[in-house]
Nucleic acid binder design. Structure first.
Lengths: 213, 213
DNA sequence: ATAAAATACGAAGGAACCTTCGCATTTGCG
DNA sequence: CGCAAATGCGAAGGTTCCTTCGTATTTTAT
């Protein structure tokens, strides 16, 4: 009995892997519906029956592939991590640009996606416990962090190791929490968000300069 | 029939004002218990029966003075706002220190209280809708903002009005979201948090300098 | 074609809560 | 003391939601 790669035995491990085309579609439909419910109706109205309805399937079917409600949220969170991580990799790893420009670009991109997906992210944050202990989260975090250090070292070569670590944390915190804060406000225009991203980049890079001397 | 000052007719308005000593105590006990439950057991376990139990009273009594569960949360949030606002007023309004030092002090103080009350704040955020539309929130916000502008103008006199507004937003955002991010991590020591506060102050003030020239 | 495996369904069990209401107890006051 | 108002109580009605399970349908493979 050849088994597909499993998701481990976390409490969110898929109960059963879809083997036929229809069930694969069903899982996709559920995940899409979950995003819609979460971003349009909010965390409070996110329940299994509603998600199943919006996906055009029955609750029973949902529970064939997701062991519980949390598992759906976890899958969504996981997807976000992977996408964000990939985005950062592609920007910070782009050798054709200078290190400072890459740091800037990363902030811009991050603010942009954060703004586009603000409702989803907010609802995810509100409905889910933070899945930070998950191995996937940790792996992605390590990958991104290594790349970030490399970029920072290039941008500020004279920094000592502890300074570098601190700068890395500060960068990530600036990017993460300020973006969340700024883009939370749905009334902000795209241009506004871009202006903010630049201001944050300015602020961080100016600070980096003072440390680099 | 002399009526005590009411809390308006928001959906969280107190159902009845305590008139005797025992009921005043009861309300206090409930609020204290609510804080304990929220910060020690988290948002998910915050329910009316548990809060009443922890306060040593019955649910029925709780509902004599709070129209619903949200009202308890609202009262806690309100208290947080008032305390934070008072703290900022006292620091930013302290005429014996220079403007930049006051901005620094405010960040430090904010990080500190944020760190001390992190579990409560996190749980409040997770369990309550954001009560930002409340008149009390708006009033406090305006008061703090006016004082912040005055301080910023003193610290960076050459800034144009739009620059000033933007700097004010950036300052508030830095303080608020970075503090939340940094102090979220319970493993951080007090000294660590203080270091972060200083770094954020450095970062913001350095940025302010570049704009002020 | 036909049996076995995979999928889909949704009613219903059951848990967790919010809130009310009728009655018991305590306090203020003449 | 004795009455009225204030306060306190907690069982129980009602709601919402998570999850299971027996059954029906569809697909796969022989």
């Amino acid at each position: 009995m050849p088994s597909r790669p499993t998701r481990g035995k976390s409490p969110f491990a898929a109960r059963k892997q879809p083997r036929q085309q229809r069930s694969t579609k069903l899982v996709d439909a559920i995940l899409e519906a979950a995003v819609r419910v979460l971003s349009r109706e909010g965390a409070a109205k996110f329940n299994t029956v509603r998600v199943a309805e919006r996906a055009g399937v029955s609750v029973g079917s949902l529970y064939q592939y997701f062991p519980n409600k949390q598992a759906i949220l976890f899958r969504l969170q996981e997807k976000e991590w992977l996408e964000t991580s990939a985005l950062m990799q592609s920007i910070l790893g782009d050798g054709t640009r200078g290190a400072k420009q890459r740091l800037r670009d990363a902030i811009s991109a991050f603010f942009r996606t954060e703004h586009e997906e603000a409702p989803l992210r907010r609802a995810l944050g509100a409905s889910a416990p933070l899945f930070v202990d998950s191995p996937i989260a940790k792996a992605q975090h390590r990958r991104s962090q290594r790349l970030l250090y490399r970029t920072l070292r290039e941008a500020a070569p004279t920094l000592t190791r502890p300074q570098l670590v601190f700068a890395g944390e500060l960068y990530a915190a600036t990017m993460g929490s300020l973006a969340a804060h700024v883009t939370d406000d749905a009334t902000r225009s795209r241009a506004d968000v871009e202006r903010w991203a630049q201001a944050c980049a300015d602020m961080f890079l100016a600070h980096l300069e003072t440390r680099n001397r």
